[in-house]
Simulated scan of single mutants.
Amino acid sequence: TTWRALAEFLVGGRPDGGRGAPSDPGPAEAATARYEEITALFRVAQPLRRASAEIAFPLAPDLPPVSRTPAVNGVLAWEAAVRGDDREEARGRARAALAPDPFGRPPLTVPRLLACHTLLLTEDGEEAETHLCALLAEAHRERCSVTVARVLALRAELHLRHGRPDSAARDLAAADLELPPDSRHPLSYPYWTTLGILTDLANDRPERARAAAGRPVPSPAEESVSGAQLLFARGLLARADDDPHRARSLFRACGRWLLQHGWTNPALLPWRSQAAEAAHALGDAAQALRLAREELELAERWGAPGAIGAAQLCLATMRGEDRLQRLRAAVDSLGRAPSRAAYTRAIVALASVENGGPDRATAVAAPVTGGAGTGNAGPPGTAVRR
């Protein structure tokens, strides 16, 4: 098959018996760049090894830690982002991925989309939007409807993160025209459904969101990362319906799948804080505190102000002795984040506590994915309207 031929080529099974980058009559650097591009794309496809038994191929080779190839930097930027352990590395690699190719080669779309998504997580939203607009114009020129739809979807996520749900709805509607739902691959179904649910929730259309959430999912897609995103969206709906038992179950199931795929960064999908909220509502203070503290620790490791502020705001609702300190820290962090809505919620919560309001001054706003836009953190994210 094509997959197996590619796999054998990458792991060294060339017809001439050689290994590594193929021989090339041109400059050695250009040949290496071509090899690295193919390897990068192969790594992007690795999650399919878990999502579909019909696609069988070995692990992709490691990418070089230092490379001038934009595709390599785009994939490594995304891998750093999902791990959530080095925001500066992820940001630097994303920018390198979006720079012109030093060999003058045509840029690849998927690594650039990953780089733009990485910039959403590093909270460099304006920079990401500039590159997405350029990608969109390029895709229109080339009349590539699939690329147009994917760029519009990622820009919709950006709009959700920045508190522009009406713009997100317009981009999703345009994406549906470019790539109708019945033309999409089954494995992508949960991603598109999740984005639609989050957009509907942000635009105060809960019934439409519930209808979408109740539709069946193709079985291979349920165990994918996009399947985890859909679990998160369903958890938000359960939370809006005041069903903390179901919400906690869905958020924790989402977290299990994300961790299995190596997605630990809470900026992707803050499932821990959402599960903590549900546990708190159910009276399980120990679990709520554990999850909230874990999310704050991971958010601080990543270093994005929005993710840190959202985690601080969540923890502030869980305990009493340092609530005021936590709320002030949340206000400070969210004041440096893209979402004004999250900052406003933190201000209201702080004012309520300072004025002697109830212990639970405010509910932590639910974000959204893919990850998976948010009012806090997480792709995409939005506040659930009750």
Results as ranks from 00 to 15, higher is better:
residue 187 L to A: 09
residue 130 T to F: 12
residue 181 P to D: 14
residue 110 V to A: 13
residue 340 R to L: 15
residue 73 N to W: 06
residue 74 G to L: 04
residue 355 N to E: 14
residue 289 L to N: 03
residue 368 V to K: 00
residue 182 D to H: 09
residue 17 G to Y: 13
residue 383 A to N: 03
residue 214 G to A: 12
residue 237 L to D: 07
residue 134 A to H: 10
residue 314 C to R: 00
residue 6 L to D: 11
residue 103 F to K: 05
residue 357 G to M: 09
residue 150 R to C: 06
residue 69 T to D: 08
residue 239 R to S: 10
residue 146 V to C: 01
residue 317 T to V: 06
residue 293 R to W: 12
residue 351 A to C: 08
residue 252 R to F: 10
residue 277 E to F: 02
residue 156 A to I: 06
residue 75 V to Q: 04
residue 242 D to W: 08
residue 90 A to T: 08
residue 355 N to W: 08
residue 48 L to V: 05
residue 374 T to L: 14
residue 114 L to K: 02
residue 10 L to R: 00
residue 351 A to I: 03
residue 3 W to A: 11
residue 54 E to K: 11
residue 261 H to S: 06
residue 345 R to I: 04
residue 379 P to D: 13
residue 351 A to H: 12
residue 211 A to K: 12
residue 223 E to G: 12
residue 59 L to A: 15
residue 220 P to Q: 11
residue 347 I to M: 15
residue 256 R to Q: 14
residue 373 G to P: 05
residue 175 A to D: 06
residue 152 L to A: 02
residue 33 A to R: 02
residue 72 V to E: 04
residue 20 G to P: 04
residue 191 Y to S: 06
residue 214 G to I: 11
residue 170 R to Y: 13
residue 34 R to I: 11
residue 303 G to L: 02
residue 335 G to D: 09
residue 173 A to R: 06
residue 89 E to F: 12
residue 180 P to R: 04
residue 208 R to Y: 14
residue 45 A to S: 10
residue 161 R to E: 09
residue 355 N to F: 10
residue 68 R to W: 09
residue 204 D to H: 14
residue 184 R to Q: 14
residue 152 L to Q: 03
residue 16 D to K: 09
residue 377 A to D: 05
residue 34 R to A: 13
residue 198 L to K: 05
residue 308 I to Q: 08
residue 296 L to D: 00
residue 274 Q to M: 15
residue 7 A to I: 09
residue 147 T to V: 13
residue 165 P to T: 04
residue 172 L to T: 02
residue 114 L to Y: 11
